[in-house]
């Protein structure tokens, strides 16, 4: 192989690899930890319950927790190992308490650090809720662009 061909192919291969590599950045924005919850009626995923929707708040908090990608990304307290939520439906209120363990993760320059954790257990009242099950113990992450996967940590059945 001629010298010029070797050099030309080396340069082309390097540039191609660089372009491909630039597409592989895995972390572009800050991440916020959340416990992802899905709601179910008669075993099927749903957002409405006979015309009503759930109102989810942190215990003693006024601000409701909004849905992301049809799921509730429940923010948890970073300074304790449990967080309680109030879930209202048709004027009735249930309380859900999640217990977890957390640690710090470094995700990259642009994402920085975030808490990560495992959901250990939960307790709940049963005024309207039928049951709550843990589907995946590893907590999810939310970004300003939303949830990047829809894997539920818990499922709330009515």
């Amino acid at each position: 192989m001629k010298v010029k061909q070797i050099i030309a192919k080396s340069i082309i291969a390097t540039v191609l690899a660089a372009v491909l590599s630039s597409c592989l950045d895995d972390c572009e924005e800050p991440a916020y930890p959340a416990i992802v919850a899905g709601t179910y009626l008669d075993g099927k995923s749903t957002l409405t319950f006979q015309g009503d929707t759930l109102i989810v708040k942190g215990l003693l908090m006024d601000q409701p927790i909004y849905r992301l990608n049809k799921l509730y990304a429940l923010p948890f307290r970073l300074d304790t190992d449990s967080t309680s939520y109030v879930i209202e439906l048709k004027g009735q209120t249930d309380t859900l308490t999640l217990y977890y363990q957390t640690w710090l993760e470094f995700l990259g320059e642009k994402c920085g650090c975030a808490s990560a954790g495992l959901v250990d257990s939960l307790r709940y009242s049963r005024h309207m809720i039928d049951s709550v099950k843990i589907e995946k113990t590893e907590m999810g992450k939310t970004y300003s662009s939303g949830l990047k996967n829809n894997e539920e940590n818990i499922r709330i059945y009515y």
Partner: peptide, 20 residues
């Protein structure tokens, strides 16, 4: 290692510091 980590939680208004 990572030091001087400061995390703010927007909903609960809590602040956590720590290190790896």
């Amino acid at each position: 290692e990572v030091n001087d980590i400061l995390l703010r939680d927007g909903y609960w208004q809590s602040v956590v510091t720590g290190s790896i």
